[in-house]
Design a protein around this nucleic acid. Structure first.
Length: 476
RNA sequence: GGUCCCUUCGUCUAACGGUUAGGACAUCAGGUUUUCAUCCUGAAAACAGGGGUUCGAUUCCCCUAGGGACUACCA
């Protein structure tokens, strides 16, 4: 028989959801979905001092944005302290853990002594393990602050990581980990093992940083007599300088990417490819496709550098896949935010036409305002810019006058990009003008920009009246 | 320092001992074109180093170097 696969994402609420966290969540999610399993979410808020207000919401919002819906209820570790205390006591009674009354100062002193002789390892020296039952009882009755430590057995701990293969660690290198802190809260190690067991997690998929402490967790499973889950440790996402991705490298928070105008499908697709290879040359995957194709065995061991260029390309790709209506809806918040644009004065179908013109140029939604500003206000046109590189000011003025006269004769019914292009090109040819010396000034007159969509497209969206108005201004 | 993990083009990666070492992004050069972008074509670009094993190593083993993680009453 096969048990149902269960994975979880277990962030601690100490800040926004980072891109690395999202990838960990994504892989855990994909592995569950691929195997018709379940994906849970657990908030590891056992450190009161590091708790950051609003971060749970940020995490939830980030996951929701990415489309990673979790099964079951959210689990908060802070609400389960009695459970952890109960299990910790159980370990003490069984002789697998012990009370430690050392103060932080004492521990600091101990470490100083240990390193004084040039030695570099600092490990708890188990001085409290020597306490007699009477001494322990007396201290406990006197309410002496204390912690509970894991009594790491001798020997070695070996396990198979789904990504890295066999990993073996000598228990002598494992410190007597604190399981329960003096404030009564558990440490990560204890709470994590207990919760994963109680939630029935079958596969622990987490970041590489946990690899060295996995023996502690395995020892705990053994001491509780629980079956241990499978482990898969994901390599890190690095910055271009190969150091840990952090604030100074730019955006790292998932919500920041959202605000910058990245599409969730692009971000998800991109980070899925960071460390996982599909085994084919396909690169573009929807979340649904990833759920079908994902394979932990094809996850790379090495850390991957986060390359914004490729994300940008992918974002542009997904932007081009949108319908104009979808894209306009996505862009609207950015246009509304732009204080130079009085967006409420424009109709939806005008906005759609404008946005549609930039679809193939847009890399991020946030660029839309700057790129389309001349559709919402007449641009100031630099008269030097009006002159095509192979033309002269005199010729340019002549061409603009021609455009003004000729376009005035075009009936409204023909005022579409295709028809305008057709008849204008034909007329230019007939008169012996060049495309460049005519069309460049027309485009600049309408947009005020060096780079923009074609003059026909702009003219169509602007309408006949406005187009003629702008050309008239340019002639002057 | 110790323990553990990792190492193919600039970047993400493919290759299950025998390939002109493939693809994508980025770069460069062309094409289309009034500009930009899109699109199309092409180019340049990598097996960290040294030993083995083998008829043959990018691929298997060892060593070195480099990078990273961990080494808290943080997760």
């Amino acid at each position: 028989m096969s048990t149902q696969i269960k994975t979880r994402f277990a962030p601690s609420p100490t800040g926004d959801l980072h891109i690395g966290g999202l990838r960990t969540a994504l892989f855990a999610y994909l592995f569950a979905k691929k195997n018709q399993g379940q994906f849970f979410l657990r908030i590891e808020d056992t450190d009161q001092t590091r708790y950051k207000e609003g971060s749970v919401n940020s995490i939830l919002e980030g996951l929701k944005w990415a489309g990673l819906n979790h099964d079951g209820d959210l689990v908060y570790q802070s609400k389960r302290t009695e459970v952890y205390q109960k299990y910790a006591d159980q370990l003490v009674k069984a002789g697998h853990a012990y009370h430690c009354f050392c103060t932080p100062e004492e521990l600091a002193g101990m470490r100083q002594e240990q390193t004084a002789d040039g030695s570099t390892v600092t490990r708890y020296d188990r001085r409290c393990l020597a306490l007699t039952p009477e001494e322990i009882k007396a201290k406990l009755e006197a309410n002496t602050p204390h912690v509970i430590r894991l009594k790491v057995p001798t020997g070695e701990t070996e396990f198979t990581d789904l990504i890295r293969g066999q990993v073996k660690i000598n228990n002598a290198d494992v410190d007597d980990q604190i399981l329960l802190k003096s404030d009564g809260f558990p440490t990560y190690h204890l709470a994590n093992v207990i919760d994963d067991h109680e939630m029935g997690i079958t596969h622990v998929i987490r970041a590489e940083e946990w690899l060295p402490s996995t023996p502690k967790h395995i020892i705990l499973y053994q001491m509780f007599g629980w079956e241990k889950p499978e482990f898969a440790h994901l390599s890190m996402i690095l910055a271009p300088d190969k150091t840990k991705l952090s604030k100074r490298h730019g955006a790292t928070s998932v919500l920041e990417f959202k605000n910058l105008g990245y599409l969730p499908e692009a971000v998800v697709n991109y980070i899925a490819l960071l460390g996982w290879n599909p085994g084919t040359e396909q690169e573009v995957f929807s979340l649904a496709e990833l759920e079908k194709e994902f394979d932990l065995a094809k996850v790379n061991k090495a850390g991957a550098i986060f390359n914004l260029e490729k994300l940008n390309w992918m974002n542009g790709h997904y932007i081009r896949q949108k319908t104009i209506q979808e894209l306009a809806t996505l862009c609207l918040p950015y246009l509304e935010k732009d204080e130079n644009i009085k967006i409420q004065e424009y109709k939806n179908n005008y906005i759609e036409l404008v946005v549609g013109l930039e679809q193939e140029r847009l890399k991020k939604l946030s660029e839309i305002g700057e790129r389309t500003k001349y559709f919402f206000a007449r641009p100031t046109v630099d008269s030097n810019m009006l002159v095509w590189k192979k033309s002269t000011p005199e010729e340019t003025q002549e061409r603009l006058k021609f455009l003004l006269e000729f376009l005035a004769t075009v009936p409204e019914a023909n005022w579409t990009r295709n028809t305008l292009e057709e008849i204008l090109i034909e007329e230019i040819k007939k008169r012996g003008f060049g495309n460049g010396d005519t069309l460049w000034p027309m485009r600049v007159a309408l947009s005020g920009e060096e780079k923009s969509p074609s003059p026909f497209e702009i003219a169509e969206v602007l309408g006949k009246g406005e187009t003629l108005g702008r050309i008239k201004l340019a002639v002057k």
